[in-house]
Nucleic acid binder design. Structure first.
Lengths: 252, 252
DNA sequence: CTGGTCAACTGGCCTGACCAATTGAGGTAC
DNA sequence: GTACCTCAATTGGTCAGGCCAGTTGACCAG
């Protein structure tokens, strides 16, 4: 049943093992897990380690921990789980491709629904973005606001959230490292122009145009990205202390 | 309604506090956090509690814990968080609408790329689904495999993940409780028929047909849903950017 | 200046204990 | 007999202190 555990980030291995038992159905949905103390004994680890593993599963949404009662399986499939350790799975290009497909559909839909208020909101992000092209952090924020703002026009919270999540994924260490090389006032101004084209198409109610403009924008992003791919790691940023990305710090 | 407190667990309060400091920029991206022992002292809690909070943030992808070195801020936006009892899950209706938009675009794209192997994979999920319409859990699994299988045809890991995540969202306690009332062998057989229509359109390379079939499938899902419990969601319709309290049941 | 060693961090994990919430069995009043 | 109450066992939540292992940078021999 429960087998002892090996090495390397113990609580994560414990989490993996329990996650596997849930996915395989060995632990059915709704079922109560053994008590923390029992789990610790059966896995030959200490209770704090078991607790840490269970907290991981709780954050992932797989189990529900109820004080004084027990730990219950709430669903079978490991859902989201933010970035952390999945960089080896999805590369920047893959991400941009996915965004192109999804955000094009959103832009297309938004073109038929936009009201003056919505356009005003987009304009706000555009002017804000134009004023901070030299601030790497603030401009990213405006960029994000523009993309989620389009999703907001459709009026669906899920779309807004998914759009934001995909945007945030560029913040993985590996991605951010690359981005720091090709992002600059010049490229941001290009992106801003493309944003304006999208905004205009949506404001005009031109669904096909909005879709095309969004596709062009994300395609260009991809292009700007690949052009600076050759010189991966040439310099370090201000607070960087010579730490290579070493893309496997927490991969399991 | 009764107890808005929920008696927040300590490590979650600590996690919230640190998360806030990151979001506000007080802790910049790339910066190293104080050592666990120092954090424990500054926050007047024990080190295990700090550790548990940091593990939460690590799973969420906000920080990167490096053994022997320290804890580093990776990114600023909280984003995802699957959320066990996180009620901010959008309503079922909203979710299906988002899925319609995104999965239609995916189906459209898949129709132009499907190879025999891909179709065979879809067929496998269809036969499997047909054999277990009476098993509430197994049929859900086959359903999921079909939808992610279509995303897999496009060959983009991000799309597969997003599709699976949106599907899994129906597993929230609130959603699952409602679903148990309208899901049955009959409705599953209807869904299976709609799946077959999607599969046929993709196999035929008919992009527009695949898109239409997927839209029909998710629209029908929505309809089946609202016919049994639709009254509860009659208020939220398209274009409705309301934020329904919809406080998810912490316990069922 | 170069290369290697080592000691002071830092996180990883453990033992053992006590507190607080939940829950159900058993007792009491009606 | 039923309804309510009490209370103790069970379970998660938190704390304290300690040792081990990996990381890092200063220091010293060459």
């Amino acid at each position: 049943m429960f087998s002892p555990v090996e090495s390397r980030r113990l609580y994560r291995q414990v989490a993996d093992q329990i996650r596997l038992m849930i996915a395989s159905g060995e632990l059915a949905v709704g079922q109560r897990l053994p008590a923390e103390r029992d789990l610790a004994e059966q896995l030959s680890v200490s209770r704090p380690t078991v607790r840490e593993a269970l907290i991981v599963l709780e954050v992932e949404g797989l189990v529900n921990i109820r004080m004084g009662s027990g730990i219950y399986v709430v669903r079978q499939h490991a859902a989201t789980v933010a970035g952390a350790e999945r960089e080896p799975v999805e590369g920047p290009f893959e991400l941009l491709q996915a965004r192109a497909l999804i955000e094009c559909a959103i832009a297309e839909e938004a073109a038929g629904r936009a009201k003056p208020d919505d356009i005003a909101l987009l304009d706000e992000t555009l002017t804000r973005m134009g004023g901070v092209v030299n601030d790497a952090i603030a401009v990213l924020d405006a960029d994000r606001a523009f993309h989620t703002g389009i999703a907001a026009i459709v009026g669906n919270a899920t779309l807004i959230r998914v759009t934001g999540e995909m945007f945030d994924m560029r913040m993985t260490p590996y991605f951010a490292k690359l981005a720091s090389h090709f992002e600059g006032p010049t490229t941001w101004r290009s992106a801003l122009d493309e944003h304006r084209a999208i905004r205009d198409a949506i404001a005009a109610g031109d669904a096909a145009g909005a879709k095309a403009a969004m596709r062009a924008h994300l395609t260009m992003s991809q292009k700007r990205f690949s052009e600076s791919f050759g010189e991966e790691f040439s310099g370090e940023e201000e607070r960087g202390r010579n730490k290579r990305p070493s893309k496997g710090t927490t991969k399991t």
